[in-house]
Amino acid sequence: MNPGSDLQAEGGHGAVPTRDVPTGTEAGSSPRDWPLWEVFVRAKRGLSHLHVGSLHAPDAAMALRNARDVYTRRSEGVSIWVVPATAVVASSPDEKDAFFDPAADKAYRHPTFYDIPDEVQHL
Protein backbone atom coordinates (compact mmCIF):
# COMPACT_ATOMS: atom_id res chain seq x y z
CA MET A 1 0.00 0.00 0.00
CA ASN A 2 1.24 3.47 -0.82
CA PRO A 3 2.33 5.11 2.44
CA GLY A 4 2.07 8.54 0.86
CA SER A 5 -1.50 7.94 -0.21
CA ASP A 6 -3.76 10.95 -0.09
CA LEU A 7 -6.78 8.68 -0.13
CA GLN A 8 -8.78 8.16 3.02
CA ALA A 9 -12.08 6.76 4.04
CA GLU A 10 -14.54 9.62 3.94
CA GLY A 11 -18.17 9.29 4.73
CA GLY A 12 -18.16 5.55 4.23
CA HIS A 13 -17.55 5.91 0.51
CA GLY A 14 -14.32 3.97 0.44
CA ALA A 15 -11.61 6.11 -1.06
CA VAL A 16 -11.95 9.69 -2.16
CA PRO A 17 -9.39 12.47 -2.48
CA THR A 18 -9.02 14.64 0.60
CA ARG A 19 -6.63 17.18 -0.88
CA ASP A 20 -8.13 20.52 -1.88
CA VAL A 21 -11.66 19.48 -1.01
CA PRO A 22 -13.55 20.71 2.08
CA THR A 23 -13.72 17.53 4.13
CA GLY A 24 -13.03 19.29 7.42
CA THR A 25 -10.16 17.12 8.56
CA GLU A 26 -8.62 19.89 10.63
CA ALA A 27 -10.32 21.31 13.70
CA GLY A 28 -11.15 24.99 13.53
CA SER A 29 -13.32 27.55 15.22
CA SER A 30 -16.23 27.15 12.82
CA PRO A 31 -18.48 24.13 13.27
CA ARG A 32 -18.11 23.59 9.55
CA ASP A 33 -14.52 22.69 10.34
CA TRP A 34 -15.30 19.89 12.77
CA PRO A 35 -13.35 16.78 11.82
CA LEU A 36 -15.00 13.72 10.39
CA TRP A 37 -15.23 10.46 12.36
CA GLU A 38 -16.00 6.96 11.13
CA VAL A 39 -18.45 5.10 13.35
CA PHE A 40 -18.44 1.37 14.11
CA VAL A 41 -21.24 -0.26 16.09
CA ARG A 42 -21.40 -3.72 17.64
CA ALA A 43 -24.99 -4.92 17.57
CA LYS A 44 -24.57 -7.47 20.34
CA ARG A 45 -21.97 -9.35 22.29
CA GLY A 46 -20.00 -11.82 20.20
CA LEU A 47 -20.38 -9.94 16.93
CA SER A 48 -17.78 -7.64 15.39
CA HIS A 49 -18.07 -3.90 15.22
CA LEU A 50 -19.39 -2.95 11.80
CA HIS A 51 -18.96 0.33 10.00
CA VAL A 52 -22.29 2.15 10.02
CA GLY A 53 -21.40 5.61 8.75
CA SER A 54 -19.67 8.80 9.71
CA LEU A 55 -20.31 12.09 11.44
CA HIS A 56 -18.74 15.39 12.44
CA ALA A 57 -17.70 16.18 16.00
CA PRO A 58 -15.23 18.57 17.64
CA ASP A 59 -13.36 15.81 19.52
CA ALA A 60 -13.41 12.10 20.35
CA ALA A 61 -15.66 12.32 23.42
CA MET A 62 -18.29 14.30 21.54
CA ALA A 63 -17.94 12.00 18.52
CA LEU A 64 -18.86 9.06 20.76
CA ARG A 65 -21.92 10.90 22.07
CA ASN A 66 -22.99 12.03 18.61
CA ALA A 67 -22.62 8.45 17.40
CA ARG A 68 -24.85 7.30 20.23
CA ASP A 69 -27.51 9.79 19.19
CA VAL A 70 -27.25 9.35 15.43
CA TYR A 71 -26.65 5.61 15.08
CA THR A 72 -27.98 3.78 18.17
CA ARG A 73 -31.25 5.55 18.97
CA ARG A 74 -33.25 2.52 17.87
CA SER A 75 -31.30 0.08 20.06
CA GLU A 76 -28.88 -0.86 17.31
CA GLY A 77 -25.86 -1.37 19.53
CA VAL A 78 -24.10 -2.32 22.74
CA SER A 79 -20.71 -0.83 21.88
CA ILE A 80 -19.46 2.01 19.70
CA TRP A 81 -16.05 2.82 18.22
CA VAL A 82 -15.25 6.16 16.65
CA VAL A 83 -12.12 6.57 14.54
CA PRO A 84 -10.82 9.80 12.98
CA ALA A 85 -11.49 9.48 9.25
CA THR A 86 -7.96 10.71 8.64
CA ALA A 87 -6.63 7.63 10.48
CA VAL A 88 -8.13 5.27 7.93
CA VAL A 89 -5.83 4.39 5.04
CA ALA A 90 -7.84 3.23 2.05
CA SER A 91 -6.91 1.30 -1.07
CA SER A 92 -6.84 3.36 -4.21
CA PRO A 93 -9.26 2.88 -7.11
CA ASP A 94 -6.19 3.10 -9.40
CA GLU A 95 -4.77 -0.02 -7.77
CA LYS A 96 -8.00 -1.94 -8.06
CA ASP A 97 -6.77 -4.32 -10.76
CA ALA A 98 -3.52 -5.19 -9.00
CA PHE A 99 -5.22 -5.55 -5.66
CA PHE A 100 -8.31 -7.52 -6.45
CA ASP A 101 -8.28 -9.07 -9.91
CA PRO A 102 -5.72 -11.81 -9.12
CA ALA A 103 -8.24 -13.38 -6.73
CA ALA A 104 -10.95 -13.55 -9.38
CA ASP A 105 -9.85 -16.81 -11.06
CA LYS A 106 -8.90 -18.74 -7.93
CA ALA A 107 -12.16 -20.39 -7.20
CA TYR A 108 -10.37 -23.08 -5.16
CA ARG A 109 -9.96 -20.51 -2.41
CA HIS A 110 -13.67 -20.67 -1.79
CA PRO A 111 -14.91 -23.48 0.44
CA THR A 112 -16.97 -25.00 -2.35
CA PHE A 113 -15.09 -28.25 -2.85
CA TYR A 114 -16.14 -30.20 0.19
CA ASP A 115 -19.41 -31.72 1.27
CA ILE A 116 -20.67 -29.85 4.23
CA PRO A 117 -22.43 -31.95 6.85
CA ASP A 118 -26.05 -31.04 7.39
CA GLU A 119 -25.35 -30.28 11.04
CA VAL A 120 -23.02 -27.39 10.19
CA GLN A 121 -24.87 -24.11 10.15
CA HIS A 122 -24.02 -20.48 9.34
CA LEU A 123 -21.25 -21.43 6.90
Partner: peptide, 12 residues
Protein backbone atom coordinates in the same frame (compact mmCIF):
# COMPACT_ATOMS: atom_id res chain seq x y z
CA UNK B 1 -28.38 23.72 15.59
CA UNK B 2 -24.69 24.35 14.80
CA UNK B 3 -24.38 20.91 13.19
CA UNK B 4 -26.73 18.20 11.97
CA UNK B 5 -25.36 15.95 14.74
CA UNK B 6 -26.46 18.50 17.33
CA UNK B 7 -29.94 18.76 15.75
CA UNK B 8 -30.26 15.05 16.43
CA UNK B 9 -28.84 15.24 19.96
CA UNK B 10 -31.14 18.07 21.06
CA UNK B 11 -34.06 16.44 19.24
CA UNK B 12 -33.42 13.18 21.10
Amino acid sequence: APQLEEDVALGN
